[in-house]
Amino acid sequence: MIGWLRANPDAFLDALLQHLALSVSGLLIGVALALPAALLLARRPVLAEWASAGAGVLRTLPSLAVLAALLPLLGVGFTPSVVALALLALPPVLLHALVGLRGAEPAAVEAARGMGFTPLQSLLRVELPLALPQVFAGLRTAAVQVVSGASLATFIGGGGLGDLVTQGMALLDIPQVQVGGIAIALLALATEGGFGWLQRRWERA
């Protein structure tokens, strides 16, 4: 494995950077869609129910199926992969944020109203901060999902560390497969650990 890494440092770095680019873009887009949606839906119980149900369905769909199903629409490569990853990131963030926003202490919300907050002020200054632990939990789940899903982007030509695995398998180059596998695993564990650390930091602060 070390031998393969020594021989192909550039290939490894390329794959890693691609993987990160895929993951970060997918996560950012997913969050950029999910958070405002959660804020909009928080006060509309019926719509929120529907959105939760939809997100629940989306979350149940296998990642590879989501990636593959986008191919006829968007073709192959980086962009469809990012779209698919955004779709994977969306449900956890949306579901957790909704739970957090709708579960905010009624007494706190009541008090905010009583002090003359407008509904928008109350949402942004009281309910959102109260919901933050949930939002962080959602982010963590989404990030791990995305890093994991990005390893499948190789199947639709999106690149990333998955390439090392598929190329290695094609060439029967076991060290390359192992490097790919370990790199993906470590990245996922680091993401999980890093976001977990952030979450705890935030909760203590």
């Binding site: 890093v147 790919g180 596998g181 993906i184 695993a185 564990l189």
Partner: peptide, 17 residues
Amino acid sequence: AGLYSIPTLALFALLVP
């Protein structure tokens, strides 16, 4: 928990050998 957070493809890649 660690085992579960390893992505599918990575787990397969590590187990194939």
